[in-house]
Structures are given as structure tokens and as C-alpha cells.
């Protein structure tokens, strides 16, 4: 029951973050919302493992915790890279 409660809370959070990701208005808002969505997915997967009685799924959460960083850094490099090209450095 407690896992279901937590999952409901996480789902509400995901819905709100999704709304921000769709609304924008700037690209940075979307990046922020997508980042937050990533964290919430980690929580959802971890909690869902407990809900269905197989908590060894936490490997999946670990992948996200580690690999998501590469994606985030790539996004921010993309943003800054354009900046560098425009600045002519």
C-alpha cells in the first residue's frame, strides 16, 4: 500500500513535469523538466519493483542514475557549443 501511495505521488509529479516540458516556453525549461522527469522515472522504477515484489530491479534505476548524466552533459554541450560558434571564440 505504501508503495502504491508513493507511486501515485510520483505519477502526479511526472504529470506536472510533463506539463512544464510541453509548455516550455524556453528550451531550458524543457531541459529542466526532462531532467526532473528522469529523476522521477528512477523513483517510479524503484518503487514499481517493490510493488510487484521484485526489488532487484534497482539495477535499472542505477543505469539511469549513471547514464542520464551523459545525456544531460550532451544537451548542455549542444547549447553551449552553439554559443561558442556564435561568439567566435
Amino acid at each position: 500500500m505504501m508503495f502504491a501511495t508513493a507511486i501515485v505521488g510520483i505519477l502526479i509529479t511526472m504529470a506536472l513535469a510533463l506539463a512544464r516540458a510541453l509548455k516550455g516556453p524556453t528550451v531550458f525549461d524543457r531541459i529542466l523538466a526532462a531532467n526532473m522527469f528522469g529523476t522521477k522515472t528512477i523513483l517510479l522504477i524503484a518503487a514499481a519493483g517493490f510493488l510487484t515484489g521484485r526489488p532487484d530491479w534497482t539495477d535499472l534505476a542505477l543505469v539511469y542514475a549513471l547514464v542520464n548524466f551523459a545525456g544531460t552533459v550532451a544537451v548542455l554541450k549542444y547549447v553551449r557549443f552553439q554559443d561558442m560558434a556564435a561568439g567566435g571564440e
Binding site: 526532462a34 530491479w57 535499472l60
Partner: peptide, 24 residues
Amino acid sequence: FAAAMVFGVFSLLSAGLFTLMDAV
């Protein structure tokens, strides 16, 4: 670029859905 960000969310969601459907 914004679409790519939202597509990242899509990927997260599908991974979550696969997990919930036991396809770990």
C-alpha cells in the same frame, strides 16, 4: 531541439512502461 528534449521524456516513459509490464 525542443522536440529532442520531449523525446527524451518519451524514452523515459517507455522504459517505465516496460518495467511496469515486467519486461525488465
